[in-house]
């Protein structure tokens, strides 16, 4: 049911996802203008894992737990694959050793009711270095583990877990 669209470089997987059908996943190797809440920038160089999932229309009050479920799915994938202790900072960040490794942005498109939603996940996997302003607050799986991460495997595990979780509320 889930279809995956892959891109080398796009401005933002969340923005692009708004033109796709529900249950489409868009993955980019790099984002030119990745963003978080309130338009803040999301550092998105090659090496990181950036993907968005389009969801069908739902009750807006149920959507409030979407982000938490996504955070749980990411933390579970990290815990299942690596010897790390991820911490979910509710509702939309995952931390490792006190530093942000993942950010989640849920966007709802709303008219009289929710038309659809997009959950965007930015996971710092193979990022070797952060700019000076992020060094103290951000980390990557590669920096923590000193090894290359298989982005494809992690993405698929997160998507499958998300699908499982979301079917309980949508």
């Amino acid at each position: 049911m889930i279809s995956i669209k892959r891109f080398k470089k796009i401005s933002s997987t969340n923005e692009k996802a708004k033109g796709f059908k529900p249950w489409t996943v868009l993955v980019a190797e790099e984002q030119g203008a990745g963003y978080g809440r309130k338009g803040s920038q999301w550092f998105s160089p090659k090496g990181g894992l950036y993907f968005s999932l389009v969801l069908p229309k739902s009750d807006i009050h149920d959507l409030q737990i979407l982000t938490i479920l996504a955070g749980f799915a990411v933390a579970k994938a990290i815990k299942d694959n690596f010897d790390l202790e991820p911490l979910i900072k509710l509702p939309n960040d995952v931390l490792i050793n006190g530093k942000k490794v993942c950010g989640i942005l849920t966007e709802n498109i709303v008219g009289k009711e929710v038309k659809f939603s997009v959950i965007g996940i930015g996971l710092n996997t193979n990022i070797k270095e952060f700019p000076a302003d992020l060094k103290k607050t951000a980390t990557s799986l590669q920096l923590e583990l000193k090894k290359e991460i298989n982005n494809e495997k992690i993405m698929k595990e997160v998507v499958l877990e998300l699908e499982k979780q979301l079917k309980t509320i949508i």
Partner: peptide, 13 residues
């Protein structure tokens, strides 16, 4: 509209 850490894009009907 930013609510519950989600961004809600309000569009015209």
């Amino acid at each position: 509209l930013s609510a519950m850490k989600m961004e809600n894009e309000i569009v015209s009907e």
